[in-house]
Design a protein around this nucleic acid. Structure first.
Lengths: 359, 359
DNA sequence: TTGTATGCGTTATCAG
DNA sequence: CTGATAACGCATACAA
């Protein structure tokens, strides 16, 4: 016999009664506010213990106006980038006594809008969002106007009253491209993973106008890619820029198409690690070797990057820190900071391994 | 000028006043319960729209006794197994109008206990837990006794009143081991990833007694591994069973140790994909080739498994389905099901690729 | 130090 | 169909 089974949770009123004091005193004894005599406190604590009392945080939130909950909106929790960033956010939150309400938006604008509404109804104290599309500005701004601060992760939304955390995508892509150029490659392909909407914008002669896309991650990286080429006196060729989807199979197909081109690329820059996997898979299928036949550099230092043959050279983002910083920034706002909105760019690190070689 | 900026969220009382009706009527008009005249409804809806009204779900939960929130406790959200399972849980939840409150327990028992308390205080309607340790039975049972149903994911806790979802670890490990044996391997190592606590239990002559560990994932798989060996007439050698940590470096170190053994293993069964990465990395460092020198089979079909050279043969778990099923089972309980507790075992699939070859 | 009373924003009950 | 009013469980101002 290990204690009786309680079905319903006792309220503070029950505890108070059991301890022979008023609810106010019980509240003070348990909540640690106000002042209580030692005798009362002990009686209350004993009663609470006996009854298995747990304060109802809903009731508390109604009074205090704080739910101690952060909403997190990400496009795809399975993506290692976001699961690692989420970890950073969650750690930062827990450290200061907050919990995380997670919603997967699946890159779906309608779902994202609905989620924003739901999280607002739940009165989350703040929101970390990796928005699906810049087009969601109004829905996001509405949440901010309702008094819920937002921190944008990885992606920016021009004109939104929010802090943002990310990397300097343009500079990072430029740096990676320059390294490939320095290795003697003249025909460098860019695997963006973007979708159809992006394709026309990436196909202008000489990639003119990409800088106007710089608000998006893909756009900024494409701009950096072009910057490097132009500075090196290499004419950017739109047919070497692929935007055929972000799945591994998409990347494999894109790779096959690229390598079948006249004057085919001798190096590929992939904008994330899943795309790099597609490239590797296509190369295997084609019987080509990396880096002997094609050099490869990818964004994000996946856990497998160092273990495969050849080990992959990558542009490593401080993903965990990105998330943690977003969480901290948000909690600062929640706790009343009214500093100007900041746009934190964390440094990236190029990790040279063996997948990119000179030709 | 795009509408005025509201700082505080209006309550239903404000909306009612604006629409010229009572709060009760406003509530009915917005909540869709009871009956309201068309005229009132339209007036209320217009007012709500104008004021940007959002119902306060906290207040609603206080009344209805439902938070429409599922708590999810996982040891490590960065682990692809859990991030994919989480996706399944979240999808199942959203489908039925629930949200997910996520907590990372970091394989820390104290943290897990604390999280259980916090989630109980938040009055989550139910909990999906991948418990860190079987030892947490009492804390889990206390939550169940408080009226919050629990579904266990991936791991079991004997004696706990909860549904469980997972695979048949013993059978899956036995099958994988048998395949290695059929390829002619006689010296097969098992990389468990377990920690020090496990080591003594795995080092008895002939692996006797492992079946008593079968409640844990590692224990069950070790038992399956032994089953296969014994049935094939191969004496299990404890020194071929490693439990030196679940990080990649741990696996790499373990691999080096194993391969330095007299009568070294010619095949390795790794209990998750991160461990497999460690094996691969160690082999590269040793200048050994897979599968020519050492065959490798791992649990979990990581996204890179098919893309690397050689493509990895794996025991694939239906991870997403595991999560989704856990979510559905839990929601059934939340919505009043009082069927007997079920222990759902989903089928695994062996995917033969090229990392395991005959010798 | 303690107790009483009020309010947070809903839903639910019950007259009218 | 509508409105007043009582919960829900807690925190807090105020009085004792």
């Amino acid at each position: 016999m290990s204690g009786s089974v309680r079905r319903a949770m006792p309220s503070i009123e029950i505890v108070a009664k059991e301890a022979g004091v008023s609810t106010a005193t019980a509240g003070r004894a348990l909540g640690g506010y106000g002042s209580v005599s030692r005798k009362s406190r002990e009686a209350v604590q004993a009663a609470a213990e006996r009854l298995g009392y747990r304060p109802n945080s809903l009731a508390r939130s109604m009074i205090t106006g704080l739910t101690h909950t952060l909403g997190v909106l990400v496009p795809d929790i399975e993506n290692p980038f976001f699961s690692r960033a989420l970890r950073g956010i969650a750690d930062a939150a827990h450290e200061r006594g907050w919990e995380v309400l997670l919603v997967n938006t699946d890159e779906d604008l309608a779902l994202e809008r609905k989620a924003l509404g739901v999280l607002a109804e739940r009165r989350v104290d703040g929101l970390v969002v990796a928005p699906t599309d810049v087009a969601d500005r109004d829905a996001l701004q509405a949440v901010v106007d309702a008094g819920i601060p937002i921190v944008l992760l990885d992606r920016r939304v021009p004109g939104l009253d929010a802090d943002t955390v990310g990397i300097d995508n343009r500079a990072a892509a430029k740096d990676a491209t320059e390294r490939l150029l320095k290795l003697g490659h003249r025909s460098v392909a860019l695997l963006t993973g973007g979708d159809e909407k992006l394709r026309p914008k990436l196909s202008r002669p000489g990639l003119r106008g990409v800088e106007r896309l710089a608000a998006t991650t893909v756009g900024a990286r494409a701009a950096g890619y072009r910057d490097a080429l132009v500075e090196a006196g290499v004419e950017p060729r739109p047919e070497l820029v692929s935007a055929e989807g972000f799945r591994r199979e998409d990347a494999a197909a894109a790779t096959r198409r690229l390598l079948a081109l006249p004057d085919a690329p001798t190096a590929i820059l992939a904008l994330d690690s899943l795309l790099a996997l597609g490239v590797l898979q296509a190369l295997r299928g084609l019987g080509m070797r990396c880096p002997a036949d094609v050099s490869l550099v990818a964004f994000d230092d996946a856990d497998w990057a160092e273990a495969i043959s050849p080990p992959l050279s990558v542009v490593a983002q401080p993903i965990y820190e990105l998330g943690a910083e977003a969480g901290r920034l948000l909690l600062d706002r929640v706790q009343g900071s009214d500093k100007r909105f900041t746009h934190r760019r964390l440094p990236t690190r190029f990790i040279e391994r063996e997948s990119a070689a000179s030709r």
